[in-house]
């Protein structure tokens, strides 16, 4: 993986930092007209951008958008019914021909599926940190944004779902090797 995750909290005083492949200048977050807000940033060539928002600086959500830097300014406008709006820019320098169909975190979901359909993190293969990858959770009917399903034993074979993922077994079939062994001995 070649992506980097510098967190540029818009509106906060963070100094530009040196990055492995060129720098990313601080985005401009300014008040617009008609109760709107404007965000502008330099789109560095071959860099893929994701944008997040938050109301409390704790819970961050992705906008359903992906931008490719082309050496030009990228600009967005916003209005919100929320009390507050914080924005954060994240990016990857992984070279790709199509950032929408690419899978930066290798979890089996495309970047676009992550930010537009499943609301998962395209730069973290395990968005809820429960030990199972987002793609595997989706494929097996679990919630990739809810860690509580990791300990559930969906098929009743003695293995929790995260353990099934770790052992590459089917979480919806009684295929616990240990259980099979016991059955054989009996």
């Amino acid at each position: 993986m070649n992506w980097r995750i510098p967190a540029l909290a818009v509106g906060l005083a963070l100094a530009p930092m040196p990055y492995a492949r060129g720098q990313q200048a601080q985005p401009d977050f300014t008040q617009g007209t008609n109760d709107s807000w404007n965000l502008e940033w330099d789109g560095v060539s071959d860099r893929t951008y994701f944008l997040q928002w938050s109301e409390n600086l704790i819970d961050w959500y992705y906008f359903p958008l992906i931008e490719s830097g082309q050496g030009l300014l990228i600009a967005y406008g916003f209005t919100s019914t929320g009390e507050r709006l914080f924005l954060r820019l994240r990016y990857s320098d992984e070279p790709v021909s199509d950032p929408y169909t690419a899978d930066f975190d290798g979890d089996g979901l495309t970047n676009w599926e992550e930010v537009n359909t499943y609301m998962t993190d395209p730069l973290d293969g395990d968005s809820d940190n429960d030990g199972a990858s987002d793609g595997w959770e989706i494929a097996n009917g679990f919630d990739p944004n809810n860690a509580s399903d990791a300990t559930i034993d969906s098929d009743g074979d003695g293995l929790g779902n995260a353990a099934e993922y770790a052992q590459n077994t089917d979480p919806n079939a009684k295929d616990n090797p240990l259980l099979q062994l016991l059955v054989t001995v009996d």
Binding site: N38, E40, G43, W53, F63, L65, E67, S68, G69, Q70, L72, L73, I74, A75, Y76, G77, F78, T79, S80, T81, G82, L85
Partner: peptide, 14 residues
């Protein structure tokens, strides 16, 4: 949240 890509006059991204 409503958001839109702003068209800049001279150096907008694609």
């Amino acid at each position: 949240i409503q958001f839109w890509k702003r068209e800049l006059s001279d150096k907008s991204g694609k």
